[in-house]
């Protein structure tokens, strides 16, 4: 009856206890539910409303407010290109236009094969490492068009199963955060921000 895995249900139970009122857990629950299912299905909305003792309307009102939450599926890899000011000044628009051309999709669209979806996003908090792209939850920064291509190649390969480190993540899930090509990105000496992809697993 629950659309969620037992682990996620358990996590929800724990989350709801963290606050003076369980409704506080709503936004995290929605995001974690989306991580698992790829999007917020009607069943997910119903279940979360039920867990919190809220109406589905109350849950939907919240979903519609937050730009990361979606009620439709996205691609397995959701490519989010920042074009806000710092990135704009360093080629964010070009990266975005390149993604449109290469993936053949526009803003908030998903490719027919379901591998990639694209979104032009607002500032990602990577301004001093501009231009930046986030794929699912992974940051890729100080990108050139060539580096972007390599990154997309790697994701595409992973989607085909060509990448041995590939995990079991469902559509739109963040996927395993293991070795992705981040070469060159992060020109700031030790490239700390660029290499964090490895640290996260």
């Amino acid at each position: 009856m629950s659309p969620f895995s037992p682990q996620l249900e358990a996590r929800f139970r724990e989350l709801m206890q963290r606050y003076p009122a369980r409704r506080s857990a709503l936004v995290p629950m929605l995001l974690y539910a989306q991580d698992e299912l790829g999007w917020l299905t009607p069943e997910a909305v119903r279940r979360i409303a039920e867990l919190l003792g809220e109406t589905e309307l109350a849950v939907r009102e919240v979903i519609g407010y937050y730009s990361m939450l979606r009620t439709e599926p996205a691609g397995k890899y959701h490519v989010q290109v920042c074009t806000n000011i710092s990135c704009l000044l360093r080629g964010g628009d070009e990266l975005y236009a390149h993604c449109e051309r290469r993936l053949g999709i526009g803003h908030k669209q998903t490719a027919a094969d379901g591998v990639f979806s694209l979104e032009e996003v607002e500032c990602l908090g990577a301004c001093s490492w501009a231009p930046a792209v986030q794929v699912n939850y992974d940051f890729h920064q100080e990108l050139t068009l060539e580096q972007l291509d390599k990154i997309l190649d790697a994701y595409a390969a992973r989607a085909r199963g060509a990448d041995p480190s590939q995990g079991q993540g469902g559509a739109g899930s963040p996927g395993p955060r293991t070795a992705l090509p981040v070469d060159g990105s992060g020109s700031r000496g030790e490239a700390a921000l660029g290499t964090r992809v490895q640290e996260k697993s």
Partner: peptide, 20 residues
């Protein structure tokens, strides 16, 4: 009754009924 709510954000915000 709480049957009306606000969907979306910003310029897209709109009043919505409880059953979509």
């Amino acid at each position: 009754v709480w049957a009306l709510g606000v969907a979306n954000r910003g310029i897209n915000a709109t009043i919505v009924p409880n059953h979509q």
